[in-house]
């Protein structure tokens, strides 16, 4: 089972919340990810960071998770940032025309500091 190779973590930060996915995001693990995302309480203007830098494998179920995160955040007028998306997954996101929907950052520090800079600039 791939469950052994998968873990999900949730961490509140000043800007919002960081959802970390590690291991294989596939048919077996995706329902848990989707439930986790839908259970998040987001406020307007908050940031949902989906940190997939520890993700080893991502099929269309993983793409479902990205879309669910985006739709869930959009419903709350919150923003989504994807951190550490593998090259092959970026390619797929480009192919299916969804790359424009997301902000991509190479690592968590960049994601959070870029946010701080934006907030500072906007204030």
């Amino acid at each position: 089972m791939s469950d052994d190779a998968f873990s999900m973590s949730l961490r509140p930060v000043a800007a919002g919340v960081v959802l970390g996915l590690k291991g294989d995001v596939d048919t077996h693990t995706a329902p848990g990810v989707l439930a986790g995302i839908r259970g998040l309480v987001l406020r307007e203007g908050e940031l949902l960071v989906l940190d997939v830098s520890g993700m080893r494998f991502c099929d269309s179920s993983g793409i479902s998770a990205f879309i669910a995160a985006r739709n869930h955040a959009a419903a709350a007028r919150a923003d989504v940032v994807l951190v550490g998306v593998p090259r092959q997954t970026l390619r797929v996101l480009g192919m299916i025309g969804l790359d424009a929907l997301f902000t991509f950052r190479p690592n968590l520090d960049d994601a959070l500091s870029a946010r701080d800079a934006n907030s500072a600039g906007g204030a």
């Binding site: 299916i96 025309g97 969804l98 424009a100 929907l101």
Partner: peptide
């Protein structure tokens, strides 16, 4: 057909 989005997600 770049920019065309997948169907049913949005």
């Amino acid at each position: 057909l770049r920019g065309g989005q997948l169907v049913g997600a949005l």
